[in-house]
Design a protein around this nucleic acid. Structure first.
Lengths: 361, 361
DNA sequence: CTGTTAGCGCTTTCAT
DNA sequence: ATGAAAGCGCTAACAG
């Protein structure tokens, strides 16, 4: 590549001033005679000068760039967060490094170090696998501002924004319960991820609050993918005494479930109700349109970016931000099929079931 | 942030050698006495040294980083390309800047310049709006290696990889024609985008080759979104004499069409056939599973990355790469409804239609 | 093989 | 208000 870049010196010469003055003009320092400043600006225009950000970064000791570290950029959820972060941060002139971890812990550590060696200002850790304390330590050591996105980290002097998944899934479960469902299958994401755990907890709390005994044979751990949801549904409905509704930890798995049920000729929602989480773009266009826990995805990203901007400018770790999800009721859920829920299940619960049902009419 | 970074000098002192020697060790130059090298490595380990990439970039005049510029990272298609590029490029130690243009031409120009000022090595332009010649000029001027992804650019000394959309859509159209469809609606993407144009051309060529007169009232331009597909379907089917099949320029619009038809109680494929393009993750899980033109998305990214690597190492612009799409026939397409196709259309074409039909049995 | 030296392009005292 | 000079951390001649 040819590309002789024009430097500050050339501008200085062209404008008949010193490099220092050019620097002052470029950086909008006010102590430059307007006349000179104009001459410099003209030279800059004429030679199409663009400051070498790398040189600038070297002397400043930091570059105006952030790193965004996600498990999987091809996942809509993460790519939307990523977009929100970018859109929020871009107006300040900052750029963004993007990195995939594939959910591998060591990759995460590795990437953070690489990013730090590039003198980036801050780093967004989206759904990180690393323990909060380690993040704190590493960031301090590396001199990088960390903001954790979509993971609940408390009491760590760590800036973080997440969604209240427990409450969200209590609500989702109660929606199903209010429709008379008592045998509700649950497909969790990887339980090593705090969000997955929280969602499962929400489900459990809701059951308990409504006097429904937990049946561990109804709870499955999967992987947040369509294929995973499909496979899990298959297992779930092959057993005797299957659920009348299934609550999924994300939409992709719900799509898998829907797909399986459709293939088996099972009608949703008349025979089985299905609930997802995320409200991905296609959720409202599925047949039936999917009832789902809508996560404030974009807001998650925007908030994270705002926290980062505040963090870096004040040097004080901003308070955590807890966002709320919203249950969007569409057509994949309905009242439990008449007599279906209990007749095939524990006869002992028949009575309470009827009471429950009556209560909700 | 505290974060006293350890420098090459500290390592030099610790190991009792000169900075140059440390540099040699770090960069694996072989002309260092093994004994010394080991001492240096130990110091590096002990002090947890990581080379300052910014300083390195300044002296080298370039940093081992690429820019990826996409219209919209939250679109699965682009995020998958992005992931492929990253995965391919990462093993070489390179990092990736990600930028959204929202399909705005000027943003594209702006971003390319910003990226260049960061001394990046090369830039991936995914579905760019900029004319090829301008890309060539700008890249030369800025001293950056450009690779164009998912856009047909020929005869420009410009490295590019794209999919043969014309052939793909001829095939998709012929699939429909072979099922007896003669009134085939077409929902195009923005026709300013070459790919959209090519797909439409494929459709037209197929019609012509099979003696079907083109009916411009069947051709719509939309925007590649679910909402756009929905809205267009609404218009399309409100007219008298609607099509018996609709071919969409991407899956998202097909999802919109499916959603509209489902809402109207129209059965797919028995009443209307629908074809999409991209084979997005949910395509096979829709009901009905969507017949679609499967684009080699991941391969698009991998190929682009390989071209870039070759480009930067040989300094010769690699030959263009044309990938092939594949029609995946699922359940959203079927034979045209008996007597439906023509009875409501131009009686004049009745005969040729019957001939056509017989040909394909 | 190894150390010394001279910058890469920019910002930032420090004089003037 | 402006210029001269030092130096950010590293690499790459150039000596030895």
């Amino acid at each position: 590549m040819a590309g002789k870049r024009v430097t500050i010196k050339m501008i200085a010469q062209e404008a008949g001033v010193s490099p220092a003055t050019v620097s002052r003009v470029v950086n909008n320092k006010r102590n430059v005679r307007p006349e000179l400043a104009e001459r410099v600006r003209e030279a800059i225009r004429k030679l199409d000068y663009h400051a070498n950000e790398v040189a600038r970064g070297l002397v400043r000791g930091t570059v105006d760039t952030f790193g965004v570290v996600v498990p999987d950029i091809s996942n809509t959820f993460f790519s939307r967060i990523c977009k929100a972060i970018q859109n929020t941060v871009m107006p300040t002139g900052a750029a963004v490094f993007l990195h995939n971890t594939d959910g591998i812990l060591n990759r995460e550590r590795q990437i953070i170090k690489e990013l730090a060696s590039k003198l980036i200002t801050g780093i967004f850790l989206v759904a990180p696998r690393m323990p909060a304390t380690e993040i704190r330590t590493l960031a301090d050591e590396l001199g990088v501002y960390p903001v954790v996105v979509d993971a609940r980290v408390e009491n760590c002097r760590l800036a973080a924004v997440w969604v209240d998944n427990v409450t969200a899934f209590i609500e989702a479960s109660e929606h199903l319960i209010s429709k008379g469902h008592k045998r509700i299958g649950f497909i969790a994401g990887p339980l090593a991820v705090a969000n997955s755990k929280d969602r499962l907890d929400g489900y459990r709390i809701a059951l308990r609050n409504h006097g429904i005994k937990e049946d561990t044979s109804l709870i499955y751990e999967s992987d947040f993918t369509i294929a995973g949801g499909y496979k899990t549904a298959k297992e779930m409905f092959r057993k005797r005494n299957p659920p009348t509704a299934v609550l999924c930890s994300n939409d992709l798995m719900a799509v898998g479930v829907l797909s399986y049920l459709h293939k088996q000729g099972v009608e949703v929602p008349s025979e089985i109700s299905v609930v997802g989480c995320d409200d991905i773009d296609v959720a409202s266009s599925l047949s039936p349109p999917l009832t789902t826990v809508s996560q404030p995805i974009y807001e998650l990203g925007v908030t994270a970016a705002q926290m980062m901007l505040q963090y870096t400018s004040t040097n004080e770790v901003p308070p955590n931000s807890i966002l709320h999800a919203k249950l969007i009721i569409r057509n994949s859920t309905s009242n439990v099929q008449e007599g279906k829920s209990e007749s095939e299940t524990h006869p002992a619960e028949q009575l309470s079931h009827n009471v429950q049902k009556r209560d909700n009419r």
